[in-house]
Amino acid sequence: MTRVLLTGASGFVGAAVQARLLSYPRYLVRSVYRRLPSQPLARLEVCKVPGLEPQSDWQQALERVDVVIHCAGRVHVMDEREVDPLEVFRRVNVRGTLRLAEQAAEAGVRRFIYLSSIKVNGEGTLPGHPYTANDVPAPVDPYGISKLEAEQALLMLAAETQMEVVIIRPVLVYGPGVKANFRSMMGWLNRGVPLPLGAITNKRSLVALDNLVDLIVMCTHHPAAANQVFLVSDDEDLSTSELLRLMARALGRPARLLPFPMWLLRGVAQLLGKKALSQRLCGSLQVDIKKTKALLEWTPAISVSGALEKTAKDFLER
């Protein structure tokens, strides 16, 4: 039996990891919550830790734990209101994470799996020139910087202790229950809203929630995962236009995409103060997962079309 401590269990990715682990008899799962659920799931241990802070005490939560899966953290914020966002990200994502990891090493935890972000690599690629796990990191925003600093601190800790560290950098994650821009796009398509996004020729990597969870669970036990950094995607890169057409098909709706040129979209977005949004819609961000597939003998469990069908079905039912 493998006893797993899971942080971020109430989040989009963490909840899916929890459900997958509970489906296997060999895992004993202990999930951390800020506020304990009123009706925890069968076979699930729960414990309360007020937050991911530099002074948090994890000793009781870490008793007899073999593997930590750390999904909690301060996430990327579109409308940042903090005066010093980098300091806030560092307090939670760096010092809070290191506090958990140091206490995990002291408690004899065998492996620490850290859910990082592709933002450690950067904000975009040229088409056909994907990021790799061995690239020199080049984060741009405070969130990406904090994730890189946490990675570096964890790898230093692994070098000084017996605890192994596994770092996973996902690209944009989608699946049942997805929110933010991905859900907004499904809403537009479902309502038949014409979108000026029919002529975008970028390339972007995505990762289905099922595929990310599958990799995380594999990393709890695969010997070759120790002290490695992995990028993860569906291994099927799409343009924004291609993604929207596949999404519309999964929703059973026509894709009303107007072929506006990309230069015009970028110009309008610049005028409206939406440069970051235009970068996500028109820019490329690809990742190369050859290392992940070769070292772990892993392949994505579900295709983009299959994952979009599951995502659309959940969206329509909700």
Rank of each mutant, 00 (worst) to 15 (best):
A294H: 15
L265Y: 03
E87I: 07
R91P: 01
L100D: 01
P254W: 07
Y131T: 05
W188A: 12
L231D: 00
A61N: 04
A255N: 07
Q103L: 07
L277E: 13
L157S: 09
F89I: 03
E87W: 02
L155H: 14
P54Y: 09
A307L: 11
L126M: 13
R318M: 13
T201K: 15
L155M: 15
A199C: 09
G108S: 05
M1H: 12
E102G: 09
R111W: 03
K291W: 13
L28S: 14
N121A: 13
V32D: 03
E309S: 13
H129E: 14
V88N: 00
T220A: 04
E242K: 07
R20F: 06
F315L: 05
I145N: 08
V268K: 11
K293W: 04
F89N: 00
D235H: 12
A248W: 06
V165T: 10
A312V: 07
Q286I: 06
D234L: 02
V171G: 02
L285K: 01
I167Y: 03
S239E: 05
G198L: 07
W58A: 03
G96L: 00
V75T: 15
E236I: 08
Q55C: 10
T201L: 13
H222S: 04
S239V: 08
S116H: 02
E106H: 11
R95C: 08
C219V: 01
E82R: 11
Q18V: 10
V94A: 00
E160Y: 12
G187R: 12
A248K: 06
Y27P: 02
M185N: 06
A150E: 04
A138G: 14
E80M: 07
V67M: 01
L172A: 15
D84W: 04
S146C: 11
R20N: 09
P196S: 08
Y24L: 14
S241Q: 11
V109N: 00
E82S: 11
A199I: 09
W58Q: 02
M1R: 09
I69T: 00
L243D: 01
V83Q: 12
C219L: 01
R245H: 11
L271K: 14
L28Q: 15
R318S: 14
P223L: 02
R81N: 10
A255L: 08
R43E: 12
E297P: 04
P142Y: 05
L238G: 02
E87S: 13
V4F: 03
P137I: 08
V213T: 00
R74V: 03
R64I: 06
C219S: 05
L62V: 07
G14H: 06
S239N: 04
L22S: 04
L257M: 10
G198R: 07
Y143L: 09
L21I: 09
A101I: 05
R43Q: 13
A158D: 07
P196V: 11
A199H: 10
S23M: 05
E297K: 15
G11T: 08
V49R: 04
F260V: 15
V171S: 12
